[in-house]
Design a protein around this nucleic acid. Structure first.
Length: 602
RNA sequence: GGGGUUGUAGCUCAGUCGGUUAGAGUGCCGGCCUGUCACGCCGGAGGUCGCGAGUUCGAGUCUCGUCAGCCCCGCCA
């Protein structure tokens, strides 16, 4: 027989998932992958899949030559087929109501195998239960599933909406370079050696921060970009070495403009992608309040548990360690767990262990059982203190209260903040909702023990609050910045700030960061020069695009919404990146490696 | 760098107190079956129990080490 091939006559006339009423009895052609096969001996049913869905194909041997019957019996999972035939309503009683196209089927008249497939390493319909390792190694198969196709499509929809949203509001999309200069502050850079400049390196951008500020100085007025950023740090479920940001910057702007713009953006996004309503304005909360009440700078407001101050209970109690700690300026904080009274001694001691792991010196526990407050610390509390404790913790019958004391107020809060998250998950206390929050008034600087100097909490170009400027020299840790984060259900989905537009202020901040004028000149000279050439007040925000898409998809990890993500060791299991290179390539770059496999143990 | 957890057939898992030939479901291969839809029925192949030591008469099981995946802490301006 003449060898047939994929010519124009075999091109699909309709997608598998989009057949519908009004098309009955038409001749159609489908192209797709064979998802399932049910061979009844005579009649043969195929489920043909493409990214739009699946349609049942009927192969009745009576309509086919011996040769094609034989070929049909040899069809296997994920073969790529073109099928010609008549679309028809299924015979009465054979409809499948659990299938979107279950009223129809294609009565095949001819088919062509376009490509065979080797047996699969895992079954596609069970991929959600399969080792992620395996899915990543065979990502082309993993992505050939409705769920992953849907995630990719949501991602596409978010990107498209984003582009339209900002373009409609006179934002200019500008590409900034990937081959750029290493920035000493912040995350580790990915480095790229320059062949034509021996011994010199590019760095892949951690964010387009400096470039977008320079675009403002250039008079671009409003800029946005959906762009990759790179950080060579350890990975998490919501962190990849390369990730995508929606980067936004505006000139002649103040915080309120950014909040309004982003709230409108988010409202439209949720309406468009999920058809759900979220209503601005979003709650705003100072960093200090967030830390104090939730022990986190990205509190999950779906959890109805709050950290409380127990100073009043313990400052005059006979628990001398706590009283002394409080007198020295330390903190005693508590977190109530509804129905935590039922926790066993073992469960409580596991929690105590966990608190220690998180850096607490210990964990005090109270439980109310049958109207009586119980716990090892009870003996230090007189009746009024005991009452005060129950009142502050808002304790009811059957509840528990956990107490952490620490010299450092922040430490006490963050330990309880982490326990809050873990307890809420364990005891199913996380409400179903979209809870947005702006966290504002971040500290500008944070003391770095290792380097024994102040470092920027956000980045070194964040503007300090005008009213805190005079603290910059006296009490750097007290200075608040004009930075803000957008938080959704405990995830930081965006962060930004009003930037410094006065070169003198920028100089002072560099000074506070212990950069000598020479070091500042060496590292950021071009920015300082630009700042001194007519800089509009400006500010902006960067949204974590992958995280946003993850939340919209209801996914547990950003890997689920990235086509080709990397593992925790920053490897691509499919392509095998990173890999070794030819020694000639290294020579060209004037690079010598110390040891090819394990430099640390060499 | 640290803590936790997982690793047994292609895949998902079971494997008792250390005991003879390591099982199930599914997939794969072969046979039967003309309205199935997770098709059904019958048969078959398929194992470096992650890897390496050790204890023991005997190790999938116990001990130590090691590798890999994932989650978390540190880190992520």
């Amino acid at each position: 027989m003449e060898r047939r091939h994929f010519d124009a006559s075999w091109k699909r006339t309709v997608y598998c998932g989009s057949v519908g009423s009004g098309e009955e009895n038409r001749n159609i052609v489908l192209n797709g992958w064979l998802r399932r096969r049910r061979d009844l001996g005579g009649i043969l049913f195929l489920e043909l899949w493409d990214h739009t869905g699946t349609l049942q194909v009927v192969i009745n041997p009576e309509n086919f030559s011996e040769e094609l019957q034989e070929e049909a019996r040899g069809l296997r999972s994920e073969f790529v087929l073109a099928v010609k035939g008549t679309l028809r309503v299924r015979p009465e009683g054979t409809e499948n109501s659990s299938m979107p196209t279950g009223r129809w089927e294609l009565l095949a008249e001819d088919f062509l195998v376009l490509s065979p497939s080797a047996p699969l390493p895992f079954e596609l319909h069970e991929a959600d239960r399969v080792d992620e390792n395996l899915r990543l190694r065979h990502r082309y198969l993993d992505l050939r599933r409705d769920k992953m196709q849907r995630n990719l499509r949501v991602r596409h929809d978010v990107a498209r909406y984003t582009r339209d949203f900002f373009a409609d509001r006179a934002f200019l999309e500008v590409e900034t370079p990937f081959l750029t200069r290493s920035t000493p502050e912040g995350a580790r850079d990915y480095l790229v050696p320059s062949r034509v400049n021996p011994g010199h390196f590019f760095a892949l951008p951690q964010s387009p921060q400096i470039f977008k500020q320079i675009l403002m100085i250039s008079g671009c007025d409003r800029y946005f970009q959906i762009t990759k950023c790179f950080r060579d740090e350890d990975l998490r479920a919501d962190r990849q070495p390369e990730f995508t940001q929606v980067d936004v910057e505006m000139s002649f702007t103040v915080e309120e403009d950014i909040f309004l713009l982003l709230e409108e953006y988010i409202q439209g996004l949720f309406a468009r992608v999920l058809g759900e309503e979220v209503t601005p304005p979003f709650l705003r909360m100072s960093w200090k309040e967030a830390m104090s009440r939730y022990g986190s700078d990205k509190p999950d407001l779906r959890i109805p548990m709050e950290i409380v101050d127990l100073r009043e209970v313990f400052e005059n109690s006979s628990m001398e360690a706590f009283a002394a700690l409080l007198a020295r300026g330390g903190a005693v904080r508590g977190l109530a767990l509804p129905r935590g009274g039922a926790l066993s001694r073992k469960q409580v001691s596991l929690l105590e262990e966990r608190a220690k792991e998180l850096g607490a010196k210990g964990l005090g526990a109270f439980q109310i059982k049958e109207g009586i407050l119980k716990g090892p610390l009870c003996k230090f509390l007189d009746p009024s203190a005991s009452e005060k404790l129950q009142e502050l913790g808002n304790l009811r019958e059957g509840d528990a209260l956990f107490v952490v004391a620490d010299e450092d107020w922040k430490k006490a809060c963050t330990v309880l903040g982490q326990l809050r998250l873990e307890l809420a998950r364990e005891h199913d206390l996380v409400e179903e909702a979209w809870r947005f929050l702006w966290v504002v008034d971040f500290p500008l600087l944070d003391w770095d023990e290792e380097e024994s100097r102040w470092v920027a909490v956000h980045h070194p170009f964040t503007a300090p609050k005008e009213e805190d400027m005079d603290l910059l020299e006296k009490a750097p840790g007290e200075v608040r910045s004009r930075a803000y984060d957008l938080v959704l259900n405990g995830n930081e989905v965006g962060g930004g700030s009003i930037r410094i537009h006065d070169p003198r202020v920028q100089g002072k901040v560099f000074e506070a960061l212990a950069f000598t004028p020479e070091a500042a000149e060496e590292r950021f000279g071009f920015l300082l020069k630009a700042l001194g050439s007519g800089t509009p007040p400006h500010g902006g925000i960067a949204l974590g695009f992958d995280r946003l898409v993850m939340l919209l998809c209801g996914a547990k990890s950003i890997r689920e919404v990235m086509a080709f993500p990397k593992t925790q060791k920053a490897q691509c299991l499919m392509s095998g990146a990173p890999g070794t290179v030819e020694s000639q390539q290294l020579e060209e770059l004037f690079i010598k490696t110390v040891s090819s496999d394990n430099p640390e143990k060499a």
